[in-house]
Computed example of a mutant assay.
Amino acid sequence: MGAEKSRDLVEGTDRLLRAIGHVVVAFQLLELWVAEALSAALRMKSVDDRHLVSAAMSYRQKVDLLFELYARHGMPASEFNPVIAKRAMLVAEEFRNRVVHSVWALHGEESRRWVRTKANLRGRSGFDVVTRPAQAELLEAASRAMNNVRNWEEGNEAELTLAIQALSAQEADF
């Protein structure tokens, strides 16, 4: 491999790994904000209660309980569409799971490139393995979309809808 191709591979690797990390951290922050909102909805006083909530429940359980409490007792002062907000949160989790449960690897001997491989045992077709070129720009866009989901309480329905579309559309491309 020539010096220029080697340099391009190193730069592409750095960008890809940063993008994967940004998706993971963006989701972790979203999960923390959900735990904080749930702690507030449960009227927990301690700052450490969000960690208690995080440790005791899966993300999906936290989201389900939070929105059930909103349905029963009302939402916080800010107005947002709970159906769209919850959908955005669940789509963000689905995307994050695809990222962290995929295998990221260099492929090819001559033209080394990053690929993402995802195996799936569920579904009508049974076992399936899909390998696609890794695309850092899609991961960067997903990270931005997750950051928009994290602001669900601001009530920007258009941004949440765009985030849902962006994260869902990447299922096919990603």
Rank of each mutant, 00 (worst) to 15 (best):
A158Y: 10
E157C: 08
V24N: 04
N97I: 05
E137D: 11
V91N: 00
E140S: 12
A19V: 05
W114M: 02
S58A: 06
A136W: 08
V83K: 09
N148P: 07
A3T: 11
G2S: 10
S6P: 09
V23D: 02
K86A: 04
V63C: 05
V63W: 03
S58G: 06
F95T: 00
Q165A: 14
I84G: 03
A105R: 12
R132D: 06
V129K: 00
K62G: 06
V53Q: 02
D64H: 06
R50G: 07
Q170N: 08
P76H: 03
L42D: 08
V47A: 15
F80D: 03
M44W: 15
N97G: 08
H22R: 13
E68R: 15
E11A: 11
L32P: 03
L17M: 07
N97M: 04
R96Y: 01
T117N: 09
E140R: 06
N81M: 05
M1H: 08
V53E: 01
L9V: 02
V115F: 10
S102Q: 04
E159M: 11
F174Q: 03
A71S: 10
V99Y: 00
N151K: 12
K118Q: 09
V53H: 03
F67W: 03
L9N: 00
L121H: 01
L42G: 07
F27M: 01
V63E: 02
E93H: 13
W33F: 13
S58H: 06
E154V: 14
T13F: 09
N147A: 14
E79G: 14
L90K: 01
W104N: 05
L52A: 15
R18C: 10
A119C: 07
V53C: 04
V25E: 03
H51W: 13
L160Q: 03
E31W: 04
H107F: 08
H51E: 15
L160D: 02
E93I: 07
R112L: 11
I164K: 01
L167N: 02
